[in-house]
Design a protein around this nucleic acid. Sequence first.
RNA 1: CGGGGUGUAGCGCAGCUGGAAGCGCACCGCGUUUGGGACGCGGGGGUCGGCGGUUCAAGUCCGCCCACCCCGACCA
Length: 477
Amino acid sequence: MAEERLPSRAENFSEWYNQLVLRAELADYAPVRGCMIVRPYGWALWENLQAALDKRFKATGHVNAAFPMLIPKSFLEREKEHVEGFSPQLAVVTIGGGEVLEEPLVVRPTSETIIGHMYAKWIKSYRDLPVLINLWNSVLRWEIRTKLFLRTSEFFWQEGHTAHATEEEAVHETLQMLNIYSDVLENEAAVPVVRGRKSESEKFAGAKDSYSVEGMMGDTRALQAATSHNLGQNFARAFEIRYLDRDNQQQYCWTTSWGFSTRVIGAIIMVHGDDQGLILPPRLAPHQIVLVPIHRTDSERSAVTEAVARIGRQLSDFRVRLDDRDGLTPGFKFNDAELRGVPLRIEIGPKDVAQGTATLARRDRPGREGKSTVPLEGLEAKVAQTLEDIQRSLFDRALAFQKAHTHEPRTYDEFKEVVQNGWALAWWCGESDCEATVKDETKATTRNIPLDQPGGAGVCVHCGRPARERALWARAY
RNA sequence: CGGGGUGUAGCGCAGCUGGAAGCGCACCGCGUUUGGGACGCGGGGGUCGGCGGUUCAAGUCCGCCCACCCCGACCA
């Protein structure tokens, strides 16, 4: 490494993030502008997120399938708002096999349209419903300003697409998936989120209602961690997704879509990381534990190696990495494991071997404070408990940070002040022009209108018009 | 697209008024090391972003082009 230390979070959060992603070997820049390469360590983290989501998708009746990457351009034009939203971001294939194509093909920016086309073919009867399909894939959107994981031209995600007989079912599905996202983020990634409905200007192009889960990053900016859309009958009408009901009447379906992307890796980095590097939540960490053997002489080496092998067997229920690389000092390995965010480090040296102990070092508590020497007997239980404790403390710490930086301004002056370094929960009239003015003046936008509302009514924090709901305002990624 | 900046070894950079391409890190070999980022010795690696011009001579001066980064309007 050219430089040993990262820039500090306080002095340059953005640069801290960029360097950390590269140096922890999560991802790298691709030769194509705006694209990223997810490296094995980053992909392992994504696989653990995938597993956590996929398990929940299956448990709620969803199945996986694969759809093509290329979509006839005309499909995108079928739904008016959808085409307006996505046109500027499309990559289009016009030549195949050396011939100019009859119809240009877009590289999918999202699959609602081709899903709509196929669902129209597959769905004929109320007996065919609901259709609950999820896709694990990547999509391409020609982004102007990119940042690894947070906004790249191609990104990896899952997109769920469902069709239902009734609006109630579709609404239920939309919120069910939002809750699954919130569950995974809070209980697996230890990232607290606020669930809510998107404003008219922030919602998905073509949706009736969009919902999101928003997380607060370490610099207090908001990140939309996942979204779930109630598409109403917009796509059903555009693609003629119809079924015959019990009374032999043609009905349009009600559809939904929902997505969760590798962007969440960015959230995990920005929510938990510190000046030493990543701090990964134990439930998702590719390596939950790193074992560092320490020895000088050959006799120490054989004794330590034996002890380490025994400990490895003892901890076979955990994801353990043995760092037995030659020629690197323990100090280097400690720093390396910290950079990579391994939640728990176990050091085994001659002193430990002599005493029948191991030295544990918690990643969430740097320095002496996080270190303890424990007996090898009962180590599994101690480790399990420590990992659970780290998981919980990461969530608690993130939640405390979010709460400490979430304000309830009563005046627009207060609003302008707090939104520079935090979130604002404030009454909002719901009008797009008002929202746009606030954005111009403060760079803050409505992230969502939280599902949890205090009730009652107030006046809009900006324009003073009557307001029935409070919005969550923040500067966002 | 507007404003600012940078292109010299894998990475970070130096190279002054033109005169034999360098430094640190990384990498390879050998040896000594190892409880918080080890050290010594030896080594490999370059169409100086591209094209053209000026000159006896261009990394350096001039022109054009290209690429990338940062800041502003779109987005999971």
